[in-house]
């Protein structure tokens, strides 16, 4: 029932500081309609306690420099942000700043990927340590990765390691190029499909121990950062029918390989 009450626009007298009022929203620069919308979103969060950080969250986002309509949009995409404690939110923002994300980029990043602020500082730190120590990215490269592919902070580290090793060893691509191509925006399957397709067509080779190949490999950037039609027309020089069949064949091959590996491990 208490959740219902937040629907009424007057806060209960017990916790005046943490509750939102229409008045305070208008003060913050939201329009009438925006304020109403925000109330609707909040009323969907059924646990009253969950929404009690709404005010501090809003303040923090506005202080970051985001305008009210962006704030509204990102909170609709990610209402969990209402539930983050003020102190945690400040810690997380502080941590990202320390990682080199200056005002402008932090602002853009949060607007583009709001869940970034729902991830505990500890988790982000693990990812950073992983990128620095396991993958040997420089500090600047880690900043670039976070800026280009913030969703990396919620990825499973084992999967991440596999993807890195695949691209590093199997494709022979160095860290700088990985960053440039925004590798971590793509799923492992997307990377493998395109790479294996090129490899079987004879257009991509794993470098030998000295880093040499008998053909010139296309840059990772030109393989990944283009849509499928461009990839097929200019890099793979193949029809979409071929690529479509190939992806289905690969899915089956990998699935069977996994089953085989699973049954070997079970022995």
């Amino acid at each position: 029932q208490s959740a219902q009450r937040s629907h009424e626009l007057s806060p209960p007298p017990a916790e005046p500081a943490t509750e939102l009022s229409l008045h305070s929203l208008l003060d913050m620069g939201f329009t009438d309609t925006q304020a109403q919308q925000m109330y609707d979103t909040l009323s969907k969060i059924t646990r009253r306690s969950a929404a009690k950080h709404a005010l501090s969250t809003l303040t923090a986002l506005l202080v970051l420099g985001l305008n009210p309509s962006t704030v509204l949009k990102l909170l609709e995409k990610c209402p969990e942000l209402y539930t983050v404690k003020e102190s945690q939110l400040q810690q997380r923002i502080g941590n990202l700043r320390k990682l080199g994300l200056g005002e402008g980029s932090l602002q853009r990043l949060v607007a583009y990927y709001p869940p970034l602020l729902t991830v505990p500082v500890k988790t982000v730190k693990h990812v950073v340590v992983f990128l620095r120590e396991k993958c040997l990215f420089t500090i600047q490269q880690v900043t670039d990765i976070l800026r280009d592919s913030p969703a990396i902070v919620v990825e499973n580290l084992d999967h991440l390691e596999y993807k890195f090793q695949y691209v590093y060893f199997r494709m022979g691509v160095k860290q700088a190029e990985m960053v440039k191509s925004r590798l971590f925006r793509f799923t492992l399957d997307e990377v493998r499909h395109r790479h294996c397709f090129l490899e079987r067509r004879g257009l991509y080779q794993t470098p030998d121990k000295k880093g040499q190949t008998t053909i010139i490999n296309p840059k990772l950037d030109s393989v990944l950062s283009v849509d499928q039609d461009t990839f097929l027309a200019h890099v793979a020089m193949a029809s979409s029918e071929e690529y479509d069949v190939f992806k289905r064949l690969m899915a089956r091959e990998w699935q069977e390989e996994e089953l085989r590996r699973g049954s070997i491990e079970a022995d």
Partner: peptide
């Protein structure tokens, strides 16, 4: 075969290496 089949070879090659 890259000489014999020319432009067709990549397409034949990927087929030969797949199921």
């Amino acid at each position: 075969y890259s000489i014999q089949l020319g432009k067709l070879w990549p397409s034949v090659r990927v087929a030969l290496l797949s199921e």
